[in-house]
Amino acid sequence: MADKAWWGEFTFSLEQQRCWRIGERAIILKRFENEWNSWNLETDTESDEAIMVGDLAECTAIEEAKFGRYLQQNTSDTVQILPLLADRSVVARPDTPLTLLAGEKSRLYVSTPVWFSAKLLPKGESLLDLAFWRPSDSWFGPSTRVGQICYAKYTAARVQLNNIEQRPHRAITPITVVNNHDKSLTIERINVPVTLLHLYADEANQLWTTGISVHRDRQSDNVELHLDKGAPVEALSPSLINGPRMVTEQSILIRSISSLFA
């Protein structure tokens, strides 16, 4: 668990630089008088260490990093660093298919990767929008002609809360599945519409998203997707960190089974 929040507003004096690190993965920002420089040092394998904010001294191998220059007439001194959820839906696929028996309901926990975003205050110009570890592309849909591009993650969609690993670079989404049908529902993969969810942090600075609940009715093959309001109950003393990437007015979306489960 991350003990200290790595997000918030950070003030930079001229020539000051700061480094956000998880293990070998590092994102560095440095302020000059007329430009901002950023270094993005990526790694192949995910690390479960805590995200640490510090000065440059701890970061090595800066030559291999991707370099960015952002020009401004007079650079502002405050940067707002916030976590963001993924820019596409994330498809979570349990190791073995789950079967929800008829007339039952269950609460699953799925974790999705988090993006690092840097914005300049006061105007809110976006400097960076990087994934800590970009998940693999995937396709979710009833056929190869109809569907959407999303991210895929092989996971064990946990049913017990204490089983889920709490990692600082992932946000946990609780999903309530209600099966009112008289046949059991087999869940092989779950399309989590992450672009519509709010992001919260609990008292241990673990990231949570708004919960979603999926209702399958008795008669139809359609499912209703409800976006819960507010933080999930599992998040203790939650605080709102960020809004969704795509704002939707509806809180209830009707989808067919094939667009959420398969």
Binding site: D44, V91, R134, P135, S136, D137, W139, A152, R189
Partner: peptide, 9 residues
């Protein structure tokens, strides 16, 4: 391991 290779199909 390839990120642009789709997991599904």
């Amino acid at each position: 391991k390839n990120l642009i290779c789709l997991e599904e199909p």
